[in-house]
Design a binder for these strands. Structure first.
Lengths: 224, 224
DNA sequence: AATTAATGATAGTATTACTATCATTTTAAA
DNA sequence: TTTAAAATGATAGTAATACTATCATTAATT
């Protein structure tokens, strides 16, 4: 019943597609809860197995290791944001307006949006904020990148960079600005919560409006 | 012989001041080399002990664990950058000019600068770029922050934010811009090397000039 | 020369990150 | 409906990691 979204990801991220089985979806759902609860370092497949009444061995049949699982989640997240952006900008042609909607889509994505029942998008957002950078800060970046394991993020960045270039075709840094918007959003939400001296943003009751305003201000200034 | 710099850091970062003993300095020096070589995840105190012909137990007398060691290194790095900025801007009063020098100081810091013999500043810079974000993306941020373990970064951000506010007292995001300059610098150097589709920057022969140009461009636009 | 501090050597423990094997259950095909 | 195949569970085991503890030795200090 209702609309079902299935997000398709690079096959190199998993050993067996977790979205296609009950156990797989359970792994996704509860890994999000556990990583959010304990942090990525303290998260283990054993804990996850216990939580879902399964075994380590079974989880290893889906994911090579917890790093791959994190990569999977992060890619899932960016694909989902891409999807949100797509539907939110469907009939919008003005690029300036489009970029505003894009920013709103990824800053406030998890709040009030169509989701998938086995994914808590809000907690997944928190994970991307707190642990996302670890997904690509590895000794294996280059080999993982060549396998396309960062494809979702790259494709999103590419799309946003196109809108930026539409607004100002002479702007020299469309990709850097695009990625910087994502990184800044995540960073300053994190700073506001944990290292407030590093930002001017404050967050009250999960309202990321100030972040959105800041990004819009940056964009306006930079592309003028 | 020559000028000696000793960088003083929050005592909570270590169990025993490593800069004061031969073994301690050896730990610092070789941990930088090993983390750079293997990446933080694969770096262990055992490997380090072997490399310096010492023992795990001895290393544990200096640092609680490898996370603390990383925090120490990162703080050391930011203190060192602060020091560079201070001497490079000694007689500069124009804040716009000052900010340019600041940017140059941290982007190209490790290239041609007075250093400390037991620290390879260039490799330490690489570590900050590749692993730095892990220092504060932990479940223990809050408690570590309350102990002042991110003090060096915060104080640097504070100083830079002051210069930003001098340039434009009406600018609403001096702290966010300051930290964003650091994060952007590190991120885009990393992207240029490993995920070039995420940036417009390219780096040829360790010349970070393009990064510097980009940051200067951003600053000029945003503060105008 | 005596005392204290720093380091080394060695051993041991709990946890992690897996891999392997076989039994059982579920699903799909004939 | 039976049969085969695929998925999962149960159990065991291994190598490495992240420590802690104890005692011996060496170096520094008084």
């Amino acid at each position: 019943m209702g609309v079902e979204i299935k997000i398709s990801l690079n096959g190199g991220l998993y050993l067996k597609e977790p979205q296609d089985s009950k156990l797989g979806r359970n792994i996704i759902m509860n890994s999000i809860l556990l990583i959010d609860e304990f942090g990525f370092e303290s998260f283990t497949f054993k804990k996850l197995a216990q939580k879902i009444n399964s075994t380590e061995a079974s989880i290893y049949r889906y994911f090579e290791n917890k790093h791959m699982l994190l990569l999977f989640l992060v890619n899932w997240y960016w694909e989902w944001v891409s999807y949100l952006i797509k539907i939110n900008t469907l009939n919008v042609s003005n690029p300036k307006f489009k970029l505003r909607i894009i920013i709103h889509s990824f800053v406030s994505a998890p709040k009030d949006n169509p989701g998938v029942n086995y994914v808590n998008e809000s907690k997944l957002h928190d994970i991307v904020i707190s642990e996302g950078a670890k997904a690509y800060h590895t000794k294996d970046v280059d080999s993982e990148n060549s396998k396309g394991l960062f494809g979702s993020y790259k494709s999103l960045a590419n799309n946003v960079s196109k809108v930026i270039s539409e607004i100002n075709p002479h702007f020299k840094y469309p990709f850097a600005l695009a990625t910087n918007l994502f990184e800044m959003s995540n960073n300053h939400i994190y700073f506001a919560k944990h290292l407030p001296k590093l930002t001017d943003i404050s967050i009250v009751e999960d309202d990321f409006g100030e972040v959105e305003n800041m990004l819009n201000f940056f964009v306006d200034k930079l592309l003028s």
